[in-house]
Nucleic acid binder design. Sequence first.
RNA 1: GUGGGCGUAGCUCAGCUGGUAGAGCACUCGGUUGUGGUCCGAGAUGUCGCGGGUUCGAGCCCCGUCGUUCACC
Length: 412
Amino acid sequence: MNSSGYSFEITTSAQGLARAGTITTPHGPIQTPCFTPVGTKATVKSVLPESMKDLGAQVLLANAYHLYLQPGAEILDEAGGLGKFMNWSGPTITDSGGFQVLSLGVGFKKILAMDAKTFRSDDVIAHKKDRLAHVDQDGVTFKSHIDGSMHRFTPEVSMQVQHQIGADIIFAFDECTTLHNTRKYQEAAVERTSAWAIRCLDEHKRLTDLRIEHPYQALFGVIQGAQYEDLRRLAAKDLGAMISSGISFDGFGIGGALDKGNLGTIISWVNQELPEDKPKHLLGIGAPEDLFVGVENGVDMFDCVLPSRIARTSAVYTMTGRFNVSNAPYRRQFVPIDEECDCYTCMNYTRAYLHHLFRGKEILAATLATIHNERFIIRLVEKMRQALIDGTFADLKADFMSRYAAPGEWKD
RNA sequence: GUGGGCGUAGCUCAGCUGGUAGAGCACUCGGUUGUGGUCCGAGAUGUCGCGGGUUCGAGCCCCGUCGUUCACC
């Protein structure tokens, strides 16, 4: 570890791109590969930070865009940083707000299709007039989804906001595209993201020197390039070697909408180009089958809203697949969600009780289901880490995939 | 007792001057991947209170009847 309090060590011998390691932050270590639960607005919806700790979460991710709008980054600064504000003593991450350019722009309302086959160009055009964000060479102008007020993010603003929020790992401000933009637009977005990356390094360096009394914040660059091999490799080479104001990125995010079918391929292109000795974070991916693909292609960290979001509408994971516990058959099943699960919910509550809570629209339903799903995913990645150390990753994957039914294929 | 209103999906109700029934909720199921506790999508559901009549055709018009509700003696 260097004097900054941040470091990354790889603990396994080479197994292709896959590896296990440890990221050290000023707020403690992160054993990788790891899954990072998302608490967009400084809270994992419906679950206490203490519960997140108990279920094995090592690190939490919040969002700069949301916290900037509410309560305001200066409030978190005054509070002593994100972790202290939300009573989370472990490591934290913030996303730059770049994703919101997409999700509030052309991606607003489900345009961010993960399956390229479902795309209809009319959708993008039809929604463009409704978009709340507009991208230019210098940054993004957007309208608050809360009160409609106008705001502007540039790489510098994103860095300033993320420094005020004070997470241990922050992300460069990037432009996330959909699978459906034209090739020409993807090229422009990669170029823009590169130019912004340099500005992020510069501003990050300036702020780090200015706020010398604050804990060190690691800055990760974000690789775009959509589904194009040359663009992905170009972006990875570019950001991987990038040095500005005398600093380089501490790690890398792999961003953009990713076609599920090519997930592993795209990640492998990127990780073949990026420096081996720095952590790779796959942004926004968290379905069990995708986690295996990520890990085997060299991903060290994941974050995803999926476990918590689907939990809120009653979908729960088990080793044999995922199902909706609010469905009629579970009304009188007085057994845990998953007999093999060690989470607080499975140790203490039944499917029938959760079924009842969901039917009654009780908020405890969200809490118990989220605890289960987050634990399920975190434990799954823990198992992957152990398997990498033991050299049995391929067996673990084969065993898991042979039992786990993809969504829609669940048979009870 | 007299006069009026209302009886349509499990619930609350739409159905314009007659052309073989719809909505919301509920119900059954699917979806949600750097989070708008949302939202989207698919599906099942009816002797239109009952019995007559008029009409090519009645939820709708006419007669009777039952239920319910209000008003007035």
